[in-house]
Design a protein around this nucleic acid. Structure first.
Lengths: 355, 355
DNA sequence: ATGAAAGCGCTAACAT
DNA sequence: ATGTTAGCGCTTTCAT
C-alpha cells in the first residue's frame, strides 16, 4: 500500500541512495535523475517515513514544550507564538503541562528525552525544585528556559525582565498619587513570582511608599479574590494594589466590585502579562505587556544556536517590557463608569441612577 | 553512552528477545530472568528507544490534535483536558493550530500522518472545505472530530449539542421577559456557528420572539465590539443579545458598557462556552457550559475503540450542555452595578423593568 | 520459556 | 554522480 524509498528507486530506475539524496537535497544529483526521482515519487504518492529517517539520522524534527499551567492564558498565548513560528520549519511541537507539579514535570521531561526530541523549551514550575531535572535534561539535549527559570544559571533563558516590569508598575501608581501599596502575588516558588516580589519590595522602598505585608498565594483568579477579601477586612485599603499577574488582578477587581469598592476611584489595581482579557475587564486593567512573539522567536533562535554549538556559553535574554495604561489606574479618565449616570449622549437610558 | 537492549541482554546474560519480552511484559518470562533483566536495566540506566520501538511495532504512542485557534480560550481548556487524560497513558500530544485556515489545516494533517500518529483529534475549521482532508485522513488512521465537525457524517464525533444549548439560552431570555432578540455570531462556515444559527432561528420562531437579522462575523471579541456598535446605531435595541460564543459576548458587553448601555437592565446578553473569564466580566456572563473533561474522555475512548475495531460504524456523541445563569441576564440581581450609586451592597434594586 | 535471526525504512559510509 | 551495503534499536517470527 504505502510505498517506500525502494519502490521509488525501482520506478525511477536508480538506487535507493540516489532517491534519498534527490529527495533530501543534501547532495548533488544529476538533473536527469532528480527529475525522474521526483516523477516516480509523485506517481507513487510516496511519503517518506519520518520514523525511519529519524532513527537513522538521529533527528526527530520534534521539540518539546513544558509549561506549568495551560489554564493561565499567558501560556496559550506563548504556545500559539511558538507553534506559529515552528510552522515555517519542519519541526513539530510536543506539548506537556506540568500542572505546577515538580514530579509531573520531571516525568514529562524524561518522556521527551525518551522520544529524542531535538530540543526542549520549558518554563519550570519551581525555581528550586525543578533545578535538578532541568539541568539533567539540558545535559542531554539543547534546552532553553522560557519565561520562568531555575535558580542556577545553567541553561539559556529568554523572558521578560520582571524587575523592570514591576518598577514600571510601582512608579506608575506612585505617579498616580498612591502612597500606600499592597502586593498580591504567588508564593515565590517560581522565578517570576520571586523576581516580582523582590522588585516590588525594593521599588516601593526606593519611592518611600508604604508597602503592606505582601499577600502571597498562587497565580489564580481565586487567590486574587481571597486576597482582596483579606484586604477589605483591614482597617483601611491601600491606595494601590499591585498584583503579580493579570489573573490575580482580575480576581481582585471582581471582589472589590462585589464589595462596592470602586476602582480606580477608591483604589488603583495593576496586573502583569496583558492577557487578552485584561483589556476587557471593568475597569480595563493596567498591566505589563509580554512580547510573546519576540520571546518565542528568541527561544527558537537560542535552540538553533545551541544545536550548532552545544558548548557555547549560556545566554540569558531579558526583554524590556512595556507598560500598558488602562482604566484601573486612571483616575481622570474614569469616564466609562461615570457614563452610567446618563451623561453619555449616545443613548438615553431609562431610570438613570445618580448619587 | 546511552545503552541499548543489547547491553542489557549482555549484562543480564540473556538474549535481546528475552529482554524485550521482560520489559514489554507481552510474553511470559521466567521469574528469575525477569528479575535479572530489570536489575540489569536499572544498573545500566537503560531507556528504551521509542523511535526504534515505534518503527518496528508501528505504534508511535503519539496522537495529533488539530485545533482552529488557540486564542479562543475554549480550546486551551480542551487541550488541557485532553493532555491531562493522556498523561495517564504512554501517549503524547502533538499540537497543531490551523489558525482557521483550511490549507494550513490540510498541511498539518498531512504532517501528522507522515509522523504516523496513532490517532488524530481534530476540530475542523470549516464544515465544508475541511471535509476532504478530514475524510482522507480518517481513511488512514483512527480519527475523531471534537467540538466542530464537517458536514458529512464520515467519522466519529463528540461535542456538545449546540441546538440544545441555544434552545436553553433563548428560552432563558424569553423567560426573563425578552420579546425581541438579536443574534451575534460567526459566519456559519464551521459547524458550531451553523448549528447555533439554525437553532437560534428556529427557537426564536417557536417562541414567537421578534428576531433581528443575525449579525455574523467571527468568534472574536473584536467582532462582538463591532456588532454591538452596529446594534447601537439602530433605532432601538433588542431586549436581548444572544451571542455565538463568550468572546463575542465579552466584546458586546464591552461596547455596551462604553456606550452607557446597562446590562442586564437595558438589554440581556448571553454567551456560549463558559470560558474562565465569563464569570469575571461585569456583569458576569450567562452562558452554556462546555464539559471539557467529558468531551476529552469520550474522544479518547472513541479513538481507543476505533483502534480495536477500525470498521465499526461511526458514532456521534452529543453531550447535553448546561445553562449557567449569571448577572448578564438576571434583572433582579443587578446589585453589583447599582452599588456604585451608594445604595447598600446587599440589597439593591429599584423596580426591575419587567412586564 | 528462550534464542537466533530477519527485518521495519531510511541514511551514510564506503566504493566505484 | 551513483551504487552497494551496513546498520540505527527494537519486535517478532520461527526454531528449539
Amino acid at each position: 500500500m504505502t510505498s517506500t524509498i525502494r519502490d521509488v528507486a525501482n520506478e525511477a530506475g536508480v538506487s535507493v541512495a540516489t532517491v534519498s539524496r534527490a529527495l533530501s537535497g543534501r547532495r548533488q544529483v544529476s538533473g536527469e535523475n532528480l527529475r525522474r526521482v521526483h516523477a516516480a515519487a509523485a506517481a507513487l504518492g510516496y511519503r517518506p517515513n519520518l520514523l525511519a529517517s529519524a532513527m537513522r539520522s538521529q533527528v526527530t524534527n520534534t521539540i518539546g514544550l513544558v509549561i506549568p499551567q495551560i489554564g493561565n492564558p499567558f501560556f496559550p498565548a506563548l504556545i500559539g507564538a511558538i507553534e506559529w513560528q515552528l510552522q515555517t520549519t519542519t519541526r513539530q511541537l510536543l506539548l506537556c503541562d506540568s500542572h505546577g507539579d515538580v514530579d509531573v514535570e520531571r516525568h514529562r521531561l524524561q518522556v521527551l528525552l525518551d522520544r529524542q526530541v531535538d530540543g526542549i523549551m520549558i518554563s519550570p514550575c519551581d525555581a528550586q525544585r525543578s533545578g535538578e531535572a532541568v539541568r539533567s535534561a539540558a545535559l542531554q539535549v539543547p534546552l532553553v528556559q522560557v519565561d520562568r527559570c531555575i535558580r542556577a544559571k545553567a541553561t539559556d533563558w529568554v523572558g521578560v525582565d520582571d524587575s523592570v516590569g514591576l518598577q514600571l508598575l510601582v512608579e506608575h501608581v506612585a505617579r498616580a498619587g498612591a502612597r500606600s501599596v499592597a502586593f498580591v502575588s504567588s508564593l515565590p516558588t517560581n522565578s517570576s513570582a520571586r523576581a516580582r516580589l523582590n522588585a516590588f519590595v525594593s521599588e516601593a522602598a526606593s519611592l518611600s511608599m508604604r508597602p503592606l505585608k505582601p499577600l502571597l498565594g498562587d497565580f489564580t483568579v481565586s487567590w486574587g479574590v481571597a486576597a482582596a477579601t483579606d484586604l477589605l477586612e483591614c482597617r483601611e485599603l491601600p491606595d494601590a494594589v499591585v498584583c503579580g499577574n493579570d489573573l490575580i488582578a482580575l480576581g481582585v477587581l471582581r471582589q472589590f466590585h462585589l464589595s462596592g469598592v470602586l476602582v480606580p476611584k477608591d483604589v488603583l489595581v495593576t496586573g502583569f502579562d496583558d492577557i487578552a482579557l485584561a483589556e476587557l475587564s471593568t475597569p480595563s486593567l493596567t498591566t505589563i505587556r509580554q512580547p510573546h512573539n519576540a520571546i518565542a522567536g528568541e527561544a527558537l533562535r537560542l535552540l538553533a544556536d545551541r544545536f550548532e554549538r552545544p558548548d557555547a556559553p549560556c545566554q540569558r535574554i531579558s526583554m524590556v517590557p512595556e507598560l500598558v495604561e488602562r482604566e484601573s489606574t486612571t483616575r481622570s479618565a474614569a469616564a466609562p463608569r461615570l457614563r452610567q449616570d446618563g451623561t453619555h449622549p449616545r443613548r438615553p437610558t431609562r431610570g438613570s441612577k445618580r448619587k
